[in-house]
């Protein structure tokens, strides 16, 4: 349904072009949930923005295909996007407070979403709003309609944002760190809500998070990103159980989970290279990789495994070093 192939995105800074995304790939099937995971600065949000055509003026897609039901989104005109956004593709942002207009009652903002995308008006519109609020878990939708965003808690606001995002029944919902600002209990509830709506409407979901634990629980497939690369992509079960790329492995190990208290947590030395510091050739993870070798300085192939899993690392190339 959504097939992103070799997506390259450049950003223009101080008169020079820097690649932000290089050959990013992943697919999302109908009704499936995909997790995009990686540290901040690895290009998760830029990927989402490229799909929705929301890139800033100094950022542009230089190569690659974003195949959405047969249409290449990287090539369509901004005007054509208007019929797609909201109706076919929709998005939820991290900060619910800045997604909502503080001067407008919740009910009005929600009905606006319906007015733009649906022919509903008058009483039917009102009913649709009430139903939507009920669906996202509000016990008293009538009262909620009259509230202002600041009168609601973070979790409640995020529920409103979800209701607005799904108003026009999109086929794909991109959720960019939808729960990062929320409490752990609220977080779990919001994610459960997203999942149940997704199932109910047979919608596809792209969940973006820096927390691989969350992705592991709520998604079916995952694409791990590092420094503008997709380093590993496959089913969540496989990747959580047996991460192949050294970065994925380190990411999973750095969760405190039930780690032995008496030993330090495994960490990834160093930090994500900034745009200007990225290596010009070879593997992006080279500087921080515990398994780096001479071959990592050359071209890094994407290795396809039998299960459809893909990993971008020389360790798994034919004739390369075996796993361990």
């Amino acid at each position: 349904m959504l097939d992103v192939r070799n997506l390259c995105v450049d950003v223009r800074l101080h008169g020079e072009n820097y690649p932000v995304l290089e050959n990013v790939y992943f697919t999302v099937q109908n009704g499936e949930s995909l997790g995009l995971v990686g540290e901040s600065g690895c290009g998760k949000s830029i990927t989402a923005a490229s799909i929705l055509g929301l890139l800033r003026p100094n950022v542009h897609i230089s190569r690659g295909v974003i195949d959405w039901n047969g249409r290449d989104l990287s090539r369509i005109r901004p005007k054509d996007y208007q019929s797609l956004r909201g109706r076919e593709l929709s998005m939820i942002f991290q900060d619910s407070l800045s997604s909502l207009n503080p001067l407008m009652r919740v009910g009005k903002q929600l009905s606006e979403a319906y007015q733009i995308h649906t022919p509903l008006r008058g009483e039917a519109l009102r009913r649709a709003c009430l139903e939507a609020l009920e669906q996202v878990g509000f016990i008293d939708p009538e009262a909620t309609m009259k509230r202002f965003p600041h009168q609601l808690s973070g979790g409640q606001r995020q529920r409103i944002v979800i209701a607005m995002a799904i108003a026009a029944g999109p086929q794909l919902l991109l959720a960019d760190e939808p729960t990062t600002a929320l409490d752990i209990i609220t977080q779990k509830k919001i994610l459960a809500l997203l999942k149940s709506i997704q199932k109910q409407k047979n919608m596809s979901l792209v969940l973006i998070s820096h927390d691989i634990g969350i992705i592991g629980e709520h998604c079916e497939r995952v694409a791990v990103m590092y420094s503008g690369w997709t380093v590993e992509c496959g089913s969540v079960d496989e990747i959580m159980r047996d991460p192949l790329h050294p970065y994925t492995r380190a990411l999973i190990q750095s969760m405190p989970g039930t780690h032995d208290k008496n030993s330090p947590l495994p960490t990834i030395e160093g930090r994500v290279p900034s745009l200007t510091e990225r290596p010009k050739r070879g593997c992006m993870f080279y500087e921080r990789c515990p398994k780096r070798c001479a071959a990592c300085r050359g071209e890094i192939p994407v290795i396809r495994l039998e299960s459809g899993r893909r990993v971008k690392c020389v360790l798994y190339a034919e004739g390369g070093e075996s796993r361990g």
Partner: peptide, 11 residues
């Protein structure tokens, strides 16, 4: 903080 940085700071 990010998970990997979180681990560094906790240590």
């Amino acid at each position: 903080l990010d998970l990997s940085v979180q681990a560094q700071i906790l240590n």
